[in-house]
Design a binder for these strands. Structure first.
Length: 424
DNA sequence: TCTGGGGTCCTAGGACCC
DNA sequence: TCTGGGGTCCTAGGACCC
């Protein structure tokens, strides 16, 4: 029996999603902007070729966009999220051993009787996902996750490989690592690659040949794991369920600068509502809430621009009502009328499973008793009739702080009223 | 004019305990 | 001059990912 790790990665995922529903975009360069239409966060192959950098503010490439008639879209997470689940569902028909790693990537454990069959499985994944969803994917297959990541990169960048690379023996692995720069290794970020290059280490192969204790000292245990994986020794396994997150963050830049306390409270209420929905979705309660307000960090780089307040909750809860109240108090304490706010955030940490919570001896109106049923009812209605059917009045009506989404495409797969129209 | 939004893991150091 | 020794828990911050 032969086993290996496969990494399945959607090619230019956001751009590909837009293309599935708008064929006029085929062959045309596309960029997708971050929330609030701030930065470029995804590009089609054509846009990459035009040297539009990842993460660049949109206004800096506006001339280029005009010049090359580049299509621009706001992030449409309703669409991308749904397409992502369809890709995963398709993969699950091939193997159940799947770890959803991000919105556009999944690891799979694959097993076969021959080496050749492993590669066949990769082909099947690629074909089937494209047929069922219209999304092109690349597949890298290798003895460890870290090597599968690199194999995937190669599969994507070398046309002759037709979107799939299976590295099975030492020779091929060595060749691949020699051609991979250390900064492109999964787990090696900007800081480590600068440090490594200072020490004369440029390729992934060189890194894999460094002594264990040196790596351990310079890059901690996580770095050592990466190196072992490069040598073909698996340290990371497929993690099938990541159901319970350890922290929940809900934050947004405002569509336009906010100065009034009332607007801030609305915005923070709205973020709190969203965060507590996520909290209840994983059957947890929270014991620590942090509210943050952010001003423009580019105004004066020497001045503080982040202001936060953290509250430990005596009774862990998942009630939107009680969390919103606490968050509002935090805003009142943080608020400075002389400041112009750009962004707000709500962070929930110290999450506990609801079933594990210790009840407070003296508090009779704890979450389990009172708000729990109300929240259940509210979540039920929103699940049935769509998000925000019922929501807290404290989140405001006109929501002038809402983010900009000037170039949003339709939610083709999740809204009846936004279905694609086909002419006959 | 204009600069994203989520997450994870690990470690060092302080607080506190006996 | 000199100030125990061994733990645990928590938090902040740094590193990374997409």
């Amino acid at each position: 029996m032969f086993s290996a790790f496969a990494l399945i990665d959607c090619n230019n995922f956001y751009a590909s999603c837009e293309r599935v529903f708008d064929p006029s975009l085929k062959g045309r360069p596309i960029v997708i902007l971050s929330n609030n239409d701030g930065c470029v966060i995804a590009r089609s192959g054509e846009a990459k070729e035009l040297n539009i950098p990842m993460g660049i503010p949109e206004f800096k490439v506006r001339p280029l966009i005009k010049k090359h008639n580049i299509a621009v879209r706001s992030s449409n997470y309703a669409l991308y999220g749904d397409m992502s689940s369809r890709v995963i569902e398709t993969l699950r028909t091939i193997t159940s051993d799947i770890e959803v790693y991000s919105i556009d990537e999944a690891f799979a454990g694959i097993h076969a009787r021959t080496e050749n069959e492993l590669r066949q499985i990769g082909f099947e994944m690629r074909m089937k996902v494209y047929m069922c969803t219209g999304i092109p994917v690349s597949v890298g297959i290798a003895p460890t996750k870290t090597l599968a990541k690199i194999a995937n990169e190669c599969a994507k960048s070398h046309e002759s490989l037709k979107g799939i690379l299976h590295v099975k023996n030492r020779e091929i692995i060595k060749r691949m690592l020699k051609a991979t720069s250390v900064s492109n290794v999964w787990g090696i970020g900007k800081n480590y690659s600068t440090m490594l290059e200072r020490n004369g280490i440029q390729s992934a192969l060189q890194l894999s040949e460094m002594p264990d204790n040196w790596v351990r000292k310079k890059m901690k245990v996580t770095g050592l794991r990466t190196v072992l994986e490069l040598r073909g020794e698996p340290c990371l396994d497929i993690e099938e369920s990541m159901v319970h997150r350890k922290g929940i963050l809900s934050s947004r830049s405002f569509g336009s600068p906010v100065t009034s306390l009332a607007d801030l409270k609305e915005a923070i209420s709205s973020f709190t509502e969203r965060a507590s929905e996520k909290l209840r979705a994983q059957n947890s309660v929270v014991s620590t809430l942090t509210v943050g307000l952010v001003t423009n960090k580019y105004d004066d780089p020497l001045m503080p621009y982040k202001f936060g307040k953290t509250v430990n909750l005596p009774n862990p809860t998942a009630s939107t009502l009680s969390l919103t109240k606490t968050a509002s108090h935090c805003v009142e304490e943080l608020y400075d009328p002389s400041k112009v706010y750009k962004k707000g955030l709500v962070m929930l940490t110290g999450l506990l499973l609801q079933s594990e919570v210790q009840r407070d001896l003296f508090d009779e109106e704890i979450y389990q008793n009172r708000d729990h049923k109300l929240m259940e009812c509210l979540d039920g209605l929103n699940a049935k009739y769509g998000r925000k059917t019922i929501h807290s009045a404290s989140t405001g009506i006109d929501q002038s702080w809402q983010m900009k989404q000037q170039y949003l495409s339709k939610r083709y797969t999740t809204r009846w009223d936004e279905l694609m129209v086909v002419r006959v």
